[in-house]
Amino acid sequence: MTSANQIRMPAGGASASPAGPHRAGRDSARRADNRRKWYEIIGLTTPAVLIYVMFVLVPMGFAVYYSLFRWRGVGPPTEFVGLRNYTLAFQDPIFLDALRNNAIIVFGSLLIQGPIALGVALLLNRRFRGRAVFRLLVFVPYVLAEVTVGIMWKLLLTGDGTVDALMRSLGMGGLVQAWLADLDVVIWTLLAILTWKYVGFAIILLLAGLSNVPDELTEAAAIDGASWWQIQRHVTIPLLGPTIRIWMFLSMIGSLQIFDMIWVTSVPAVRSLGASATMATYMVDNGFFARLWGYGNAVAVILFVISFVAALLFQRFLLRRDIEGAITGRAK
């Protein structure tokens, strides 16, 4: 938005009133308006900016600073080691496992939740009896706290627990696994739980997007003789693009930073063997539990950089058209 726009806006608002002031009076009124606007901007943003700087930017600076030290959190950091903590992290096979697990969750969430959510959203967008109930049901898991969901599934999945018994009674006993104990299985179990919880969020987002698709377009397509499938394929889904991309963005950032569910559902031993560790759980396990504070900060910085770069790339290549003007500047 240009500054000319900003000046014009209050004046435009004023012209809505029937009064027709003189030219000079209008100028000074415009200046006063302008000044008041700046006071408003400063007054309203200062607390937020201060909090943002104090609790986001400054701590981030400290994290980078501490990551350069060998520091156990006893006494001030004194032993400067440069980038050694970063090198150590990338040499630790468990950290590499954590990176792999994060990648599994990022891509697994997109590839599994995306198609499911789209299908269910298209279905729920049609009119049928009980639609409101279905909409509510798919959204319930998302409303539950992540810790609650984690504990619930942990109890359901214990050896010879509810899930195993249910599968056996359905004649699927051969498929029963040590869901949370088998080191090759646990990450997929966790992915399934995450899907169960977050697919509802994707569905709600897509439903909101669907309600913005004008009926005129689908009606026009129908009049032209397009089948329901053709309408979805060529009219609705293309128009859902911005919503799908925003959901992908949120899902990706969330998956990179995932912590609660893993921490609660997966026991320390399985995490420390790398089977279910993510970057965030690795950071806490090493930073606090092994009391490697400098190292933990380095992992935090790596996590931040990866998320930040991923976010920037996503915005640059996929979100560009959707958020034009708001972040990326004017379209050329």
């Binding site: 995450l194 995932i258 965030a280």
Partner: peptide, 18 residues
């Protein structure tokens, strides 16, 4: 998609304490 309040909370705790 996953909200990860806890991770950021832990991070913030580490950092603010610092």
């Amino acid at each position: 998609m996953a909200t990860k309040r806890r991770a950021s909370a832990v991070l913030a705790l580490l950092m603010t304490s610092v």
